[in-house]
């Protein structure tokens, strides 16, 4: 069974804690878990992959999942402005800020779910496509949302999402990952 699917209530709660911790640390504002949906309109979405290599079966390539952070354009502007100490962040600033948020969240998700894994580099973009998570998603994805400064941010785990477009950091020193406890 995949480490990225069938997450129990305890793990979902931990994912909510990860999202609220990341938001509150970066924005220095309280963030709380919510069931509210993302706002209508444009959003900034950042994706990165986790490659879990716990399965040491010969021939196994391990499992992949995509970690996705999505926020409305309004919250992205606030986050970029606060992170970069600027009043009017440009589009590249929004993309960079949400990419870093997803990077931090992804690292914490990796630690929560995996014991022998690596992270891709994040890839973020602005999208006009409105996508709202179903209460009971038809696929194996997991969603948690938090509200900060009156805006909703969403963290998702997509076990079946493609990862071919994502870049991996070089393996200069990290070509052999040693299992943790």
């Amino acid at each position: 069974m995949s480490v990225f699917t069938g997450l129990d209530d305890g793990l979902r709660e931990e994912l909510g804690v990860i999202l609220t911790d990341v938001l509150s640390s970066v924005l220095r504002q309280e963030a709380i878990v919510t069931t509210n949906q993302l706002p209508h309109g444009s959003s900034v979405t950042s994706r990165l992959a986790i490659h879990d290599r716990s399965d040491e079966t010969p021939g196994s390539e391990g499992e992949f999942a995509v970690i996705e952070v999505r926020v409305g354009i309004g919250l992205a502007r606030v986050m970029a402005a606060r992170m970069m100490s600027m009043s009017t962040p440009d589009t590249p600033d929004l993309v960079d800020a949400i990419a870093e948020i997803s990077n931090i969240a992804g690292g914490n998700v990796k630690t929560l779910l995996c014991h022998h894994a690596r992270l891709s580099l994040p890839s973020a973009q602005i999208s006009d496509v409105e996508e709202f998570a179903a209460a009971r998603p038809a696929d194996a994805s997991t969603y948690v949302r938090a509200i900060v400064l009156g805006h909703v941010a969403q963290l998702a785990i997509h076990p079946d999402a493609p990862v071919a477009d994502l870049l991996w950091p070089p393996t200069n020193s990290d070509s052999t990952l040693e299992p943790t406890a």
């Binding site: 990341v22 931090i104 992270l119 943790t180």
Partner: peptide, 25 residues
């Protein structure tokens, strides 16, 4: 870094890092 596994911390310190901070901070 966002890398928070014990193994990673040990490797960084063994390589010569003096301190290790995990994001978010």
């Amino acid at each position: 870094t966002t890398e928070s596994e014990h193994d990673k911390i040990v490797r960084a310190l063994a390589a010569g890092a003096h301190e290790y901070v995990i994001k978010p901070f």
